[in-house]
Design a protein around this nucleic acid. Structure first.
Length: 572
RNA sequence: CGGGGAGUAGCGCAGCCUGGCUAGCGCGCCUGCUUUGGGAGCAGGAGGCCGUGGGUUCAAAUCCCACCUUCCCGACCA
């Protein structure tokens, strides 16, 4: 491709509405442009990268035995009513109507569509298992699109779905896809952490997320450096036996008498603990939630915060809301800021760490009053202990008890054991060997294809721009004749370009009549792995200079050998 | 949904507080000449519903109201 003819608008200045590195660079290097919030154009340069990533994904999926399909992007409402997800998705789904006013949506995901297809066509166990995938634009009206390609309302996803006669068969396919994912991300040049995740309301057993650790990531990951345990921080854990034991050992067996103390206007943990001169960790915070309309009191230590995703998972609800001031007053009899478990008529659920606490401070459900020396069992009853607190650096690992680390990550892939969540709701059945009708067991597997680009740039850039790994680079090399008025340079550039192109290399020839500096800056910004520099310095010796974008490494090669040397570098 | 910032030429911004000439600057773009190893020089030029609607005023980019768009933070922690 000749740069003079290639549609590649680069920007010298940083666009004002791009905050993170990958977003800035994708705009500056001419990969994308914005049309609306969370909705982007791919320009030729960006589309080339996307195509290369798609190529890798396709190869590995086919290698895992998957077959590619293309599913509809516009779905009628009835399809979604079958699974009950039309209402569940609510505002996050783009709704539309056809000319007859029949409701449709732009598909945010395709479990329903694929299940409908398979239930209509598959009758027998002999046709199972089946692994189908597509690479398709998804539409989600995100409450808050963010960080350029990272969280879009229109984005490209590879989604695969598998259908099985039983769980054992699903496990086999699950493993194959899992392994394919490991290869896909490695081939894209990404360092990936695979973490256990909470399947949430989608249901099923095992679920894994493929994460790239990055400060700009939106997900929080818990990592154990000792035993290698890795999990999404939104996944509730069972505490280790070690932790549980220590916790109970800490609890005192003799208790002081509970008493009321006056705490005028002390509504927050900070105020109360400072006023009463006790540590925040000696307080138990009582949060009143409404889960599907029913009140639940949630108890956590004063210095910890509730992770609502965990709470929702544990309560198996999507409708979770903190109570309003009025609701609190009505339920507890005291104003907001003075709630406590003693005498409270509501379901009660506590974090595991509360199990080890005794003689603590809580609200008294009475204005300007707290209680000292509160003890579970004696003063109130806790119905359930669960993992409810937001993860913190140093928390004990649920597997081995060692101190864990908390980091942020970008979720690039997610694999689910769906079980029969959709197949039973939508009656996807087959006839088994024993002549009995059974429900299909499903798995589903997603990859955020467009998000991979952003993640790669987050991991591979420097102050000059992007540094593409060879595997997904839009061009493998760029030829830079520094002076287009120099006939020798111009001619040699053409020769090398023709030579490489003839061998099947994807090369950009910067044949613009621009000063050397402009060409260098552009080459670095756009991140093409190999620069072939044609300038007086080396040409005096009959050589051309070959530079690597990644390391800055330079070598001079005889001009007659330039083509073969470059081919070696780009591994063609 | 709540809070904060921003909307003036393709991009980055000034002007607005304290209303008043023809609305500026840098980059980019076009033409010509000169240049060519790290975003070049000179000369000439094109390009604006100052986000939209309403209001105040003799007069609005500037003041007031409403709305739209966009970016960031937070998702009510008692």
């Amino acid at each position: 491709m000749r740069r003079s003819e290639f549609f590649l608008p680069t920007l010298k200045e940083v666009p004002s509405d791009a905050e993170i590195r990958s977003h800035q660079l994708m705009l500056r290097a001419g990969l994308i442009r914005r049309l609306a919030s969370g909705i982007y154009y791919y320009l030729p340069f960006g589309f080339r990268v996307l195509q290369r990533i798609i190529g890798i994904v396709r190869e590995e999926m086919n290698g895992a035995g998957a077959q590619e399909v293309l599913l509809p992007a516009v779905h009628p409402k009835e399809l979604w009513d079958e699974s009950g997800r039309w209402d569940l998705y609510g505002e996050d789904m783009f709704h539309l109507f056809d000319r007859k006013k029949r409701p449709f949506c732009l598909a945010p995901t395709h479990e329903e569509a694929i299940t409908n297809l398979v239930r209509n066509e598959v009758r027998s166990y002999k046709e199972l298992p089946l692994l189908l995938y597509q690479i398709q634009t998804k539409f989600r009206d995100e409450p808050r699109p963010r960080f350029g390609m990272m969280r879009c309302r229109e984005f490209l996803m590879k989604d695969a779905y598998s259908f099985h006669r039983d769980d054992k068969c699903l496990q086999g396919t699950y493993k194959k896809v899992y392994d394919a994912y490991v290869r896909i991300f490695r081939r894209c040049g990404l360092d990936c952490e695979i973490v256990e995740a909470d399947p949430g309301l989608i249901g099923g057993g095992l679920s894994h997320e493929f994460m790239v650790l990055a400060p700009s990531g939106e997900d929080i990951v818990v990592l154990c450096p000792k035993c290698g345990y890795r999990a999404n921080a939104d996944k509730p854990d069972k505490p280790s036996d070690v932790e549980r034991q220590t916790s109970y050992d800490l609890r005192r067996t003799t208790h002081d008498e509970m008493k009321e103390v006056n705490t005028p206007d002390m509504k927050t943990v900070e105020q109360v603990s400072a006023f009463l001169k006790v540590k925040p960790s000696q307080l138990v915070k009582t949060l009143i939630y409404y889960a599907d309309g029913k009140p639940v009191a949630v108890l956590v230590p004063g210095d910890r915060e509730v992770n609502e995703a965990k709470l929702m998972s544990v309560l198996k609800t999507a409708g979770l809301k903190l109570a309003s001031a009025d609701q609190i007053e009505e339920l507890t009899g005291g104003p907001m800021g003075f709630s406590g478990p003693v005498g409270l008529k509501a379901g009660m659920i506590a974090d595991h760490s509360v199990a080890g606490m005794s003689d603590f401070v809580t609200g008294a459900n009475k204005k300007d009053t707290h209680l000292f020396n509160v003890n579970p069992d004696r003063d109130f009853k806790i119905e359930r202990f669960e993992d409810l607190t937001a993860a913190r650096d140093g928390d004990p690992c649920p597997k081995c008890g060692a101190g864990t680390e908390v980091k942020t990550g970008i979720e690039l892939g997610h694999t689910f054991n769906l079980g029969t969540r959709y197949s039973s709701a939508m009656k996807a059945k087959f006839l088994d060997e024993d002549g009995k009708e059974k429900i299909m067991v499903m798995g589903c597997y997603g990859i955020g294809v467009s998000r991979i680009i952003a993640a790669v740039i987050e991991q591979h850039n420097d102050e000059n721009g992007i540094i593409w790994p060879f595997s997904i680079a839009p061009f493998s090399a760029v030829i830079l004749p520094l002076n287009m008025n120099d006939e020798t340079q111009k001619k040699l550039a053409e020769e090398i370009y023709e030579g490489l192109t003839a061998k099947g290399a994807d090369v950009l020839l910067d044949d613009r009549n621009e000063p050397a500096g402009v060409k260098f800056k552009d080459a670095d910004l756009t991140g093409i792995p190999v620069k072939v520099v044609l300038g007086d310095r080396a040409l005096k010796e009959g050589k051309v200079e070959v530079q690597l974008r990644s390391s800055g490494e330079k070598q001079k090669v005889e001009k007659s050998e330039a083509v073969s040397e470059i081919l070696k570098l780009i591994k063609l």
